[in-house]
Design a protein around this nucleic acid. Structure first.
Length: 478
RNA sequence: CGGGGUGUAGCGCAAUUGGUAGCGCACGUGGUUUGGGACCAUGGGGUUGCAGGUUCAAGUCCUGUCACUCCGACCA
């Protein structure tokens, strides 16, 4: 049968994209809804994707001299209130603890929406001299933000993340740190998740509450909407002033520290699904897939079949994560669909015929192609496929990205683009808040970022016609 | 918080003018199967969201209430 029959045009999926998405995360057993509204349960298979992400990032962080630590879940209200912009930004979505045991608390405690405040409080105790700097700590934790509408991974009331917090003696060093981590995220998305991203800076309006500058990586989902996939903030010394983080410099004078923070969350799993998934379900990049190869025995009750597959699993397990599906109660066809839904990059089928011919059937999830491979060449073939699938997935994602990136020279053209399409629209922007608000009001789009690489296609603002400052990417967002 | 919708088995649904709750999938057991979601036989599973009312009789009609969900505003 022609495999292309199965590959439906992904654009047809758009209308029901949200439904498709939630269907996949539930059916592939990544998550389940929790008994508390807005919260999700991450099931073992979904969690193992997160573990793989953690491992890669954690290793990278440590290479860059960061250390892991852990700070409390609860933050006293007075502590949160110390930085004005920050508390105003988060106030609408914090959850509060007001009672301890039977007693009402003197001061209510918020469940961390992020940990800047408590970490700054500790940093102020730990820093005395320039010799103590920089402090580069990271924590893997959960945070709670009381969101009104939620969707598994993309927006839930509680989510898992890493948050790195660093303080430095100089502005320059802190800015460098912010940019370094920004690049770590971008490279991670490209090299491990096969997701192309735009690197850039957030507008004043969209930046993190309390930050001086927010850098973001913006990914495009298959339906053309944007997903903010990782952020890196430069704080200047705002928080240092609010939390009194001072150090004595070489000259013996007291100075405030310069600070950064950066985070990536379980939301990125939603990104992987929405960038790569198709109508058969998940499609996981080999570098991050919990199971890289699944072996499906055919007619497994027949002599030798299970034995051969077990040996093969053992052999391949040195290099790859290999699952042998030896369930006898379901048919091979069922297993094919089962593992495709879960996004396993490579499947090996082996039955009596193959054993007789010293061969197997190798299936790749990205293109849905099947191929007969000699068992002697199998290891080489798998090695090739792991790399080829990874690259091919990136290319496909990039293709979609480019196909759905538009240029708007004026507002009429802009409106037309978002009336007819979903995607990224590049515009020239004067830098005024008015124009930023206007596109949102009329198109529900936002400025995703001011990219590092601007393609200045005209001199005037695409919205108001005044002199333009920047080229920016705009889109509807998740 | 503004507008719409839905609550019946684990999931998806059905039940005629009110007449004592059923189907598919899933699940249990026995057997036959196994190269793209197997089949046969058989079995288990329900205070119809909750509370009240009308009636000989309520999944169905009335009142209240709760929950969920979709579309807008807020966000990693």
């Amino acid at each position: 049968m022609d495999n292309k029959e199965f590959v439906k045009d992904l654009t047809k999926m758009e209308d029901d994209f949200a439904k498709w998405y939630t269907d996949i995360v539930l059916k592939a057993e990544l998550v389940d809804y929790a008994p508390i509204k807005g919260f999700m349960v991450i099931r073992p298979y979904g969690y193992s994707i997160w573990e793989n992400i953690q491992n890669v990032l954690d290793k990278k962080f440590k290479e860059l001299g960061h250390k892991n630590a852990y700070f409390p879940l609860l933050i006293p209200e007075s502590m949160l209130n110390k930085e004005k912009e920050h508390v105003e930004g988060f106030a609408p979505e914090v959850a509060w603890v007001t009672q301890g045991g039977e007693n009402e608390l003197q001061e209510r405690l918020c469940i961390r929406p992020t940990s800047e405040t408590i970490i700054c409080t500790m940093y102020s105790k730990w820093v005395r001299s320039y010799r103590d700097l920089p402090l580069k700590y990271n924590q893997w934790a959960n945070v709670v933000r009381w969101e009104k509408t939620t969707r598994p991974f993309l927006r839930t009331a509680e989510f898992l993340w890493q948050e790195g917090h660093t303080i430095h003696a100089t502005e320059q060093e802190a800015i460098e740190e912010t940019l370094t981590m920004h690049k770590v995220y971008a490279d991670f998305c490209k090299d491990y998740l096969a997701i192309p991203v735009i690197m850039g800076q957030k507008s004043e309006k969209e930046k993190f509450a309390g930050a001086q500058a927010t850098y973001t990586i913006e990914a495009m989902m298959h339906d053309g909407k944007a997903l903010q996939s990782g952020t890196s903030h430069y704080f200047g010394n705002h928080f240092a002033k609010a939390f009194d983080i001072k150090f004595q410099n070489k000259e013996g004078k007291l100075e405030y520290c310069y600070q950064t923070s950066w985070g990536m969350t379980t939301r990125i799993i939603g990104g992987i699904i929405m960038v790569h998934g198709d109508d058969r379900g998940l499609k996981l990049p080999p570098k991050i897939a919990p199971i890289q190869v699944v072996i499906v025995p055919i007619a497994q009750q027949k002599e030798n079949v299970l034995e051969v597959t077990k040996n093969l699993q053992e052999k391949l397990s040195d290099k790859y994560s290999v699952e042998l599906d030896e369930r006898s109660e379901v048919s091979p066809g069922f297993k094919f669909n089962y593992w495709e839904l879960r996004g396993v990059p490579v499947r090996i089928e082996i039955g009596p015929k193959d054993i007789a011919n010293n061969q197997c059937v190798v299936f790749r999830r990205d293109t849905l192609e099947k191929e007969i491979v000699s068992l002697d060449d199998l290891e080489e073939k798998i090695e090739f496929l792991m790399e080829d699938i990874q690259n091919n997935m990136y290319e496909k994602a990039k293709e979609n990205f480019e196909k759905r990136t538009f240029i708007a020279h004026d507002f009429e053209e802009y409106k037309k683009i978002f009336k007819e399409n979903e995607g990224f629209a590049k515009i020239m922007w004067c830098g005024d808040r008015e124009c930023e608000d206007k596109i949102k009001e009329e198109n529900s789009t936002t400025i995703r970022c001011i990219p590092f690489e601007e393609d200045k296609f005209q001199d005037v603002c695409s919205i108001c016609g005044k002199k333009a400052k920047h080229m920016v990417y705009t889109a509807r967002q998740y």
